[in-house]
Amino acid sequence: MHPRNLHQGSYDFNVLCKTLPTLAAFVFENQYGNLTIDFSQNSAVVALNQALLKQFYHIDFWQLPKGYLCPPIPGRADYIHGLADLLAMKDGEIPTGKKIKVLDIGMGANCIYPIIGSQSYGWSFVGADIDSTSIKVAGSIVKFNKNLSSFIKLRLQKDKKSIFHNIIKPNDKFALTLCNPPFHASMQQASAGNARKVKNLNKGKAAQKVGLNFAGKENELCCEGGEIAFLKQMVNESVDFATQVGWFSSLVSKSENIAPLKKRLTQIGAKQVEVIKMTQGQKISRFIAWRF
């Protein structure tokens, strides 16, 4: 993990249960004598996230509607810290404070990136989403946590075929944009990917029939053409806002999508492209960033 990531090593479930006593109902001792939870159970993952957010980011209220995406927090934190390093390239210092404005495309009901970014670096955020329920729920999280209310604003994307258009206003200036894009072309693909993940979590044992362990609505997980189609559209739209954004960025789930994205970025005149790898345990992920 990134050296500034607060979630190094194993979860300390004793401390987390003191922080959020309701988590204790999901904690058990595994065959190796270690405390853990069933990561294939969505309600357990939600409780873990509530405890992590309370302990590390002072979030007292965080609830999601049934079925909405509940992201793994350590990996999300790595992306934020990687973006902070990107901003530090210029003079070696990470800029902090509300003057650093960040746009989160597809924020979701969970509001994770604005929470971590505002509480870690004091950045101000605009969170955008096409789903009105996500905007409403994220708004409740911001409202009921006083340490968030002055840092986070929300915008509903009413044109579901657009990414930056209708969200970035004429007078906006953003240091960064970030995105966790829909990875799949269909819910069938999403379910198949989750089945593989659950099998791995169960160490090859016969897995019980479960839903998506981190949940997720169709608009959070899928789009026509999958990840590469979404990201190509993002790249194409970014040209129109080249003077209003310092760095554009997005997670890229599939490594084979990097080459065509870099090719397209060269074609449209991006002056700098960076691909940053992130490692969480055995998992390797990445984000791509570009500027004009």
Rank of each mutant, 00 (worst) to 15 (best):
I37G: 02
R155E: 12
K277H: 14
H2M: 04
Q50W: 05
K90P: 14
H7E: 06
T19K: 03
K66W: 08
K153G: 10
F151R: 04
G117Q: 06
L83G: 09
L52P: 02
F61E: 10
A109V: 05
F230C: 02
F241I: 07
G122K: 11
Y79Q: 10
V46Y: 00
S149E: 09
A229I: 15
K153M: 13
A51Q: 11
A44T: 02
A109M: 05
F183Y: 15
K169C: 10
W290C: 07
N180R: 12
A207L: 07
I115R: 05
G211K: 04
N180L: 11
P95R: 04
E224T: 12
F248P: 01
D60Y: 13
L23A: 05
A185T: 13
D240M: 13
S285E: 09
P95Y: 06
P74Y: 09
K217H: 07
G127K: 02
A229T: 14
A138T: 05
Q63P: 04
Y32M: 03
G82V: 08
A207V: 14
K232D: 05
I59T: 08
C179F: 10
L35D: 07
C70E: 01
D129N: 03
Q157L: 13
A84N: 04
K263L: 14
C223Y: 05
P260N: 01
G108P: 01
N213C: 14
E93L: 12
K169F: 08
I130V: 15
G226R: 11
I167A: 04
S140W: 08
G75C: 11
G33E: 13
V126F: 06
S43E: 15
G9N: 14
E224N: 14
K271E: 15
T133R: 00
G117N: 12
G108T: 00
N42V: 13
M187L: 14
G193T: 11
P74W: 11
G117K: 01
D38L: 11
Y11E: 09
I276E: 05
G117D: 01
Q31C: 01
G216K: 00
K254M: 03
V27D: 05
S43W: 02
V210I: 10
D38N: 14
L212E: 06
N49T: 07
N257G: 15
K277C: 05
N257P: 10
M107A: 14
L52V: 07
I258M: 11
G211M: 05
I80K: 03
Q31N: 08
G122H: 11
P182H: 04
L148G: 01
L53V: 04
C17H: 07
S238Q: 03
A229S: 15
D85I: 08
K203Y: 10
T133N: 06
P170S: 01
S285Q: 09
P21N: 10
L64I: 06
T266C: 07
V46I: 15
N34I: 00
L212R: 00
P71Y: 03
G193F: 03
V137I: 14
I288P: 02
L231T: 12
P71K: 01
I276K: 08
E218V: 11
D240S: 14
F151T: 02
V15G: 01
V137K: 00
A77D: 05
L23N: 00
P260T: 08
K262D: 03
D240F: 12
K271G: 13
N34S: 11
A270C: 15
K254V: 03
P21T: 11
M1I: 11
P114C: 07
L20R: 13
G75T: 06
T133W: 02
H2D: 07
L53C: 02
Q189K: 13
I284V: 15
